[in-house]
């Protein structure tokens, strides 16, 4: 298994390697944030919107906090929350999706109709409305987005599982008398992995951009916690003075998303190659 991965990595195109480097840098930044950063997350260190200098690699923000420090801590908060949401959404989505595909009939019909309705509603609007009622905060944010996003995961898992469930090896397992859990875990899941892994990457990107958008609208992760979307919002005013401060966190968001997308693209390429 390890050997196979190393072999694949050797053959990987330049784009995938770039993606890999981007992701590794981001993860390191997230994990070692307190070690790397010269200042505290919310520590005010100087004047407002200072330009980049030796002391402040990326200058300071609208309250005079070190931008570089905020950016590193932002990686930590934003990536961690996006990761938690994506994992949660996959847990909900794959379990219900596999369940619906295996059971078929009424169970499938009911779950699918509910999901149809949730999906007929644009995610951003739905999230905005729910947050307007339950109020902003990290926990509601995680639950709401994970639930909404799991509808997409459900659709894919169900479709993939449907294709697998009609395979004769699944029928053979049913005829043997296997229970639901075995069918899900041992027959369907291993065969559904490639599309699900790719989708995990794409969903992560989506969730990540989505949180950034909500934070940018002031409804996501709340200050003073550093978070990339929120940092763009806080510093947006600078742009009209020709100060590029809000572009740094925005670029960081774009960069990480590109990194993940590059890896996913490569992965899809291999997966489709294996099929032929």
């Amino acid at each position: 298994m390890m050997l196979k991965i190393i072999k694949l990595a050797r053959k990987s195109p330049i784009s995938a390697r770039i993606g890999f480097v981007i992701i590794v840098i981001n993860i390191c930044a997230a994990v070692f944030a307190p070690v790397i950063c010269p200042f505290g997350e919310t520590e005010v260190v100087g004047d407002t919107w200072l330009l980049a200098s030796a002391d402040h690699l990326l200058g300071t923000d609208h309250l005079g906090r070190d931008m570089f420090t905020r950016l590193i801590f932002g990686a930590r908060n934003t990536i961690a929350i996006a990761m938690i949401i994506t994992i949660l959404s996959f847990l909900i989505g794959t379990v219900t999706g596999f369940f619906a595909a295996i059971m078929g009939g009424w169970a499938d019909l009911v779950i699918s109709r509910i999901v149809d309705i949730l999906m007929a509603f644009p995610t951003l609007i739905f999230a905005l409305m729910v947050l307007s009622v339950v109020g902003t905060g990290t926990l509601p944010l995680i639950v709401v987005i994970a639930l909404l996003d799991s509808t997409r995961v459900y659709r894919l898992s169900r479709a993939v599982a449907m294709d697998i469930a009609v395979m004769e090896y699944v029928e053979a397992a049913r005829l043997r008398g296997e229970k639901l859990w075995w069918l899900m875990r041992d027959e369907i899941l291993p065969n559904a992995m490639p599309p699900l892994v790719a989708e995990f990457g794409l969903r992560f990107c989506f969730v990540f951009l989505f949180i950034a958008a909500l934070s940018f609208l002031g409804l996501g992760i709340q200050p003073p916690t550093a978070d990339w979307g929120g940092m763009v919002r806080e510093n947006a005013g600078a742009i009209t003075f020709g100060i590029m401060t809000p572009l740094y966190p925005a670029a960081a968001i774009a960069l990480l998303t590109i990194g993940v997308n590059l890896i996913v693209d490569w992965f899809l390429h291999i997966a489709s190659g294996l099929k032929e």
Binding site: C205, L209, A212, A213, F216, G229, V232, L247, A250, A251, I253, A254, T257, I258, V260, N261
Partner: peptide
Amino acid sequence: TISFPEFF
């Protein structure tokens, strides 16, 4: 481009 947030 699809990796860029709209505000970026």
